[in-house]
Design a protein around this nucleic acid. Structure first.
Lengths: 230, 230
DNA sequence: TTTGCGCCGTACCGTACGTTACGGTTCGGC
DNA sequence: GCCGAACCGTAACGTACGGTACGGCGCAAA
């Protein structure tokens, strides 16, 4: 208690340096991270760590939030929405997301959060979820709904549509990386996979829509709209 | 070294009881599991644990393998393959997989494996991957290829087609559960989601194919076949 | 009945690490 | 130059846990 960093309180540059050191250590050593190692790497004393962040959990929580605050990407809800910009936005979204989840930093942080989710002493898992899966959901949904309003997409439940997109983009990438599979996504892989996921999503939810006319056949009346949850 | 349980060596009933106790403790307490707690729960001595399993990692490895050996489900590569049986098989596959990944046991084991994947001292992650993601891939691929040979599906790369199916089925379920999200899949949810994933997969990869004629419009020449890589 | 083996329960050891305490140093304000 | 605050580096403490040693007990074989 008495942690100085609670919710978005400004971090000094020095504190940010410390958290960056934690991130680097986390990538290198995983959850085996010790307070001594942090102090050594960050050239600070353990006393300072405890004064600033309370305890080990506080340090990890601050680190997760610090990284989350760096990841915020732009929003995609523009007004002039046609088939091309929709595809482009989805594609960009997918590529950004793939880059995030395949980054060593994301893998390390997700591993720590998963580890801590077992014994629910802190809410690292909730923080990671809120800034990852749910954050992109909230940022993508306006785009999906705008596209539906514009007659470009057809679906009943936005959440369900988003989850499908999420699955098409992520597939097995995140679980494989978390479990230590040597899977390296090159920039070309990400570009290709993002385009493919977008393509597939449009094939499933696109409504009378031709973007690259030769790429896929339009699907009349997008018959895949599912009922929300009966 | 000297671990008695290496690769599928027969476990005595007593040893299986011990591993089941480990599983239960893992579900309850996560990776915070101690050897003393295992001994207490299993009514055995720590000395016995070390004699049988070598060390803590050996115990966890044996537990993961023991659970994996219990999960083996039937194969789905039948010969008489028509649209209805294909859909049925995919649907069954999807439902089985959803049941597995949403089970507390799977969540607990995956958490442990993810934790250990950070510091690669053992290969729990590899074992879980081999018995999870890759095992179902190898079991599903024959079905997919048989369906392609029968003209029911159209795709170039089996692996890519499978990964799409994997994504459509799992979506965000596994990562949310691993991160501690309170997400409960009822039997009805699983049935519905599996059917939806199958439906979507067939819409993407089905070739001139009508299963439920009113459910979705056939897609001529399945234009979504992607090139393997570049 | 005796012998020996395997296992239980428990006490014990060594270590690693979270946490605290403290002396020494830098630095801004006066 | 002096003071106090903040901070560094390190030593020290307490604890939790992996791993080991040992006494006792049940049991199968002789």
């Amino acid at each position: 208690m008495g942690t100085e960093i609670e919710t978005g309180e400004a971090l000094t540059a020095r504190q940010q340096d410390v958290l960056d050191a934690v991130l680097r250590l986390l990538v290198e050593e995983g959850d085996a991270l010790t307070m001594s190692a942090v102090a050594r790497r960050a050239n600070c004393s353990k006393e300072t760590l405890y004064k600033w962040f309370g305890d080990r959990d506080g340090l990890l929580t601050a680190t997760v939030q610090w990284q989350a605050s760096k990841v915020r990407a732009g929003n995609y809800d523009r007004h002039k929405l046609d088939a091309a910009t929709l595809r482009e936005s989805l594609d960009s979204f997918a590529a950004t997301w793939l880059r995030v989840i395949s980054s060593p930093t994301s893998v390390a942080l997700n591993r720590v959060a998963v580890s801590h989710a077992a014994s629910a002493k802190d809410d690292l898992g909730a923080i990671v979820l809120a800034n990852g899966r749910f954050a992109i959901g909230e940022r993508l949904k306006p785009l999906l709904e705008a596209a539906r309003d514009a007659g470009l997409l057809a679906f009943d439940d936005t959440e369900t549509a988003f989850r499908t997109f999420f699955g098409l983009v992520g597939r097995d990438v995140q679980i494989r990386l978390l479990l230590g599979d040597r899977l390296k996504l090159t920039a070309a892989d990400i570009t290709r996979d993002a385009a493919q996921a977008t393509q597939q999503f449009l094939a499933l939810f696109g409504a009378s829509f031709e973007a690259h006319p030769s790429d896929f056949a339009p699907q009349d009346e997008g018959g895949l709209r599912q009922s929300p949850s009966s």
